[in-house]
Nucleic acid binder design. Structure first.
Length: 324
DNA sequence: AATGGGTGCAACCGCGAACTC
DNA sequence: CGAGTTCGCGGTTGCACCCAT
């Protein structure tokens, strides 16, 4: 038996809501509440699907919603929580008063993902791209890595060129100490006519990872013992010292208009400082994972409690809706 | 001025969970 | 307990707006 449609498709209006419709819905809900969405459009005199009404109310009309720009603090919270729970937008939105899961999701997809990518951080794993490459390099035999590197470079060339050239992201990375440093900054500030050179440098970095695997910390190259800053720096032979000065902080964010006080701790390479709230969320999520057979995928393909991935140092007080 | 690409946001879709009878 | 119904979530799409060419 097929799924029952949420409403009749005929005689149901779709698309943008008019102010009149908004008024009808708002005033009806103000009087009768939001019980039984299926009946609401009928009773409110709207030619809309109940689902559409619910969405309009929860994502736009609710009086407690914020409609403005996301603040730096909100962005930090999103990134930090995303590094822990992945694409669980409702969980993340629950920590941001006045924001809906749709808001958070849209903001992530349109702004934050690009911000992180532009900073050389994989928005899925919250690890620097260089570390991901180094990880691959350490787990495969050199011949395999060589082939994989070629394939990967082919796949990501366009994306990287886009970042390196069109976006012209200007990283202000302080190079700590002298030396033969192929920094991310070096790559990213490369001029247009140096595209090919850039690719060659990336290849070189990767090949170093292949040739000098011992330079990589054994298991988790992005981790350092108890370090509190520049953690995904560590030593990475794919991009030697490349990301050591590379951080979410405003100084590294270069020309970002907001000069936002992002901290390097947003990256999962940072030390996890588990707190009370974190423990509770952790328990909640573990419970969910146990409860649903096969576990609910967090959307990024890795366990949300993979110790290699977890980072969350949000102060307990920052959490609006602790999840127990 | 026309147009094409990029961006941001609102809305829709389909699935699974939760609820009701 | 099971079937039907409703709700909530995450992914995706559509479209208006902006800007560069």
């Amino acid at each position: 038996m097929g799924r029952v449609p949420c409403c009749e498709k005929d005689n149901v209006k779709r698309g943008q809501w008019t102010p009149e419709e908004d008024n009808k819905l708002s005033s009806y809900i103000a009087q009768h509440g939001t019980r039984n969405w299926r009946l609401i459009p009928k009773n409110a005199g709207l030619q809309r699907c109940g689902k559409s009404c619910r969405l309009r109310w929860t994502n736009y009309l609710r009086p407690d919603l914020k409609h403005g720009q996301f603040s730096d603090a909100e962005e930090q919270t999103i990134v930090k929580l995303h590094s822990v729970v992945g694409n669980r937008w409702s969980l993340i939105a629950a920590q941001l008063p006045g924001r809906t899961d749709n808001d958070v999701k849209n903001h992530w997809n349109t702004k934050l993902k690009k911000k992180l990518s532009g900073m050389g951080i994989d928005p899925v794993t919250h690890k620097p791209f260089s570390h991901l490459m180094a990880e691959i390099a350490t787990t495969l035999a050199p011949p395999q890595v060589a082939h994989l590197a070629e394939a990967a470079l082919g796949c990501f060339k366009d994306e990287m060129l886009h970042l390196l050239t069109k976006k012209r992201i200007d990283f202000h990375i302080q190079q700590s100490g002298a030396g033969p440093v192929n920094t991310v900054a070096t790559y990213i500030t490369t001029k247009h006519n140096e595209k090919d050179d850039t690719i060659e440098k990336i290849k070189l970095g990767l090949s170093r990872a292949i040739q000098e695997p011992d330079m990589l910390p054994s298991n988790k190259p992005w981790e350092t013992n108890g370090a509190t800053s520049a953690n995904f720096g560590g030593t990475c032979s794919a991009f030697p010292e490349s990301v050591s000065g590379f951080q979410y902080g405003s100084s590294s964010f270069g020309n970002e208009e907001d000069g936002s006080p992002w901290s390097q701790s947003m990256c999962t390479g940072s030390t996890c400082t588990a707190g009370d709230q974190q423990g509770r969320l952790h328990e909640k999520l573990e419970h969910e994972n146990r409860g649903s057979e096969g576990g609910k995928d967090n959307g990024n393909g890795s366990s949300i409690f993979n110790p290699d991935c977890v980072l969350w140092d949000i102060p307990s007080d920052d959490l609006m809706n602790p999840i127990v």
